[in-house]
Design a protein around this nucleic acid. Structure first.
Length: 571
RNA sequence: CGGGGCGUGGCGCAGCCCGGUAGCGCACCUGCUUUGGGAGCAGGAUGUCGGAGGUUCAAAUCCUCUCGCCCCGACCA
């Protein structure tokens, strides 16, 4: 392809609307343009990358035995009412009506539609197992779309659904998708990690997220670099401490702590370290009750774990009035001693502590040398805090490290949640009816593109991994002589004949413009053709990633490139 | 939905406080020169100043409403 024939409107300056690197660079490189908040047009270059990722996904899923189909974007309200999600999904579900005033929504996901298909068409265990997938545009009316393709309202997603007769089969289907996802992300050339994910209130069964590692990622993950354990921090279990404090119990004492509301302020005032202090967090649940959760001063509460323990949907830190009403003190001085009419839960770490510092439920006062059991009662000790670097793995064989990631894939065992609600059943060998066991599996295609840029860029532009690069090679003639024109033309055809995707910058631009645009677009290899090299019978082959330049004769160039590209594609 | 910010030529911005009829850089068009890291000179085209209403002799500028967008938070698997 010649640049003069390719619609790539590059921008010299950073667009004002973009903050994060992927968004900024994709706009500048002429890959995407915004149509409305969270809604984008994919320009030719952006679409090429999307198509490459889609193709890898398609090949691996077909290889894993899944079948491709395509469901509609619009789906009728009655299907969503059957599962209760017409109401439950909330404002994210984009609703509309047709001319007959029938209600529809734009599909944010397709469990309802695919389950409906299943129950109409599948009768017998002999038709199972079945896994289907589609690559299609989804719509979720996000409260706040942001970061370009990272969190868009309209986005391309691959979603797959598995149907099995038994749990063992369902586990196999799940594993097949998990393995396929591994191959898919390996093939993209991105650094990623599969992590255990939270299953939400549905609970129970398996869920894994595939995270592209990037410092700018929205998700925090923990992993054992020497083992197999890896989890989303929301999910990561923290084992109870093994070392219990054996300090002698000191007498409880109230101390004056004027204005010290935060852990830092109290510590500074009392000359203590945060791990001697206990935060008393008051939460309001969706049932209107208030619960106190004790967390060590240097730890962070994990609200998902608290929610799961309590079995509630919503949990929010109590507002100032509630805190005042419960503790009879302004926020910042809550403590477990003398707290009544409130359940008191504590993180495991509290059990190991003695002589701790707690709020005194009184303005400007804390207790020192507080001890559970002696000074206050705890209803239950459990895992309520967020894991952090340095914590042991759940089996205590390793130590956790932290990393940031971008969630690009999610595999989820659904069980019979949808099949029960929608009556999706089959007959087994004995003629008895069962609900089909389902799994669902998503990959955000657009988000994968954004994550790739987020992970692979420098101050000049994008650095595409070879397998998803829009082109393999960027041909850059930089001097306007006839000899160079001739050589370029020859090379262009030879490269194409060798099966290499080549972009030829045939614009009448100065060298600097071409170099800068080439670095911005991030095609893995640049071939620089100029009179300077030609005088010595060489052309420059520059690797975008390292900036390293090799001087090669035009004749050896192609075989050298073919080698590099095939190695890079495997890597 | 709460908080903050921004809408001025294709892009990035100044002008707004203190009202006087719109400017800079880049990009674009023409010509000449130039050509290995975003060229030079000369000439040229491009604006309902997001929209509506109001105040005023006069509004990009002041007031009211409204729409859109960005950021933080809440929210979301």
């Amino acid at each position: 392809m010649r640049t003069s024939e390719l619609f790539v409107p590059t921008l010299r300056e950073d667009p004002g609307e973009a903050e994060v690197p992927s968004h900024r660079l994709m706009l500048r490189a002429g890959m995407i343009r915004k149509v409305a908040a969270g809604i984008y047009t994919y320009l030719p270059l952006g679409l090429r990358v999307i198509r490459k990722i889609e193709q890898i996904i398609r090949e691996e899923l077909l290889r894993a035995g899944a079948q491709e189909l395509l469901m509609p974007i619009l789906s009728p309200a009655e299907l969503w009412r059957e599962t209760g999600r017409w109401d439950f999904y909330g404002k994210e579900l984009f609703r509309c009506r047709d001319r007959h005033d029938r209600e529809f929504c734009l599909g944010p996901t397709h469990e309802e539609v695919v389950t409906d298909l299943f129950r109409r068409e599948v009768r017998s265990y002999r038709q199972l197992p079945l896994t289907v997938f589609q690559i299609q545009t989804k719509f979720r009316d996000e409260i706040r779309p942001r970061f370009g393709l990272m969190r868009a309202r309209e986005f391309i997603m691959k979603d797959a659904y598995s149907f099995d007769a038994e749990m063992t089969g369902a586990a196999k289907s799940y594993q097949a998708m998990y393995d396929a996802y591994h191959r898919i992300f390996e093939r993209t050339g991105l650094r990623f990690r599969a992590v255990e994910a939270d299953t939400g209130l549905i609970g129970g069964t398996s869920s894994h997220e595939f995270m592209v590692l990037a410092d700018t990622g929205e998700e925090l993950i923990v992993y054992d670099p020497h083992g197999t354990y890896a989890a989303n921090v929301e999910r990561a279990e923290v084992p109870p401490p093994t070392e219990i404090s054996i300090e002698p119990l000191q007498p409880l004492q109230k101390v004056h702590t004027p204005g010290a509301k935060t852990v830092e302020e109290v510590c500074a005032l009392l000359g203590a370290t945060p791990d001697r202090l206990v935060k008393t967090l008051l939460y309001t649940t969706d049932r209107g009750t208030v619960v106190a959760v004790l967390i060590r001063g240097d730890h962070q509460a994990n609200e998902i774990k608290i929610k799961r323990y309590l079995g509630v949907h919503d949990l929010a830190l109590a507002d100032a009035e509630t805190v005042q009403a419960i503790t009879h003190a302004p926020p910042g001085f809550a403590g477990p001693i003398g707290l009544s009419h409130v359940r008191i839960l504590a993180d495991h770490a509290i059990r190991a502590m003695r002589n701790m510092i707690v709020g005194a439920n009184e303005a400007d006062a804390h207790y020192i040398n507080a001890n559970w059991d002696r000074d206050f009662q705890v209803e239950a000790f459990a895992d309520f805090r967020q894991a952090r670097a340095g914590d042991p793995t759940p089996d205590r064989t390793g130590t956790l490290h932290c990393a940031r990631g971008i969630e690009v894939g999610h595999v989820f065992m659904l069980g019979t949640k949808y099949s029960e609600k929608m009556g999706a059943t089959f007959l087994d060998a004995h003629g008895s009816e069962h609900f089909v066991i389902m799994g669902c599996y998503g990959i955000g295609v657009g988000r994968t593109v954004a994550a790739a840029v987020e992970q692979n860029h420098d101050d000049k532009g994008i650095i595409w991994p070879i397998p998803i690069a829009p082109f393999h090679v960027h041909l850059l003639p930089v001097t306007p002589s006839d000899a160079i024109a001739h050589l370029t033309e020859t090379l262009y055809h030879d490269l194409q004949r060798a099966g290499i995707d080549v972009l030829w910058d045939d614009r009448d631009e100065r060298a600097g413009v071409k170099f800068n645009d080439a670095d911005l677009l991030g095609i893995p290899y640049q071939i620089i053709l100029g009179d300077k090299g030609l005088a010595q019978g060489t052309v420059d082959l520059k690797e975008r990633k390292t900036g390293r330049i090799e001087k090669l004769s035009p004749s050896s160039l192609i075989s050298s490139l073919v080698d590099k590209l095939s190695m890079g594609a495997k890597a």
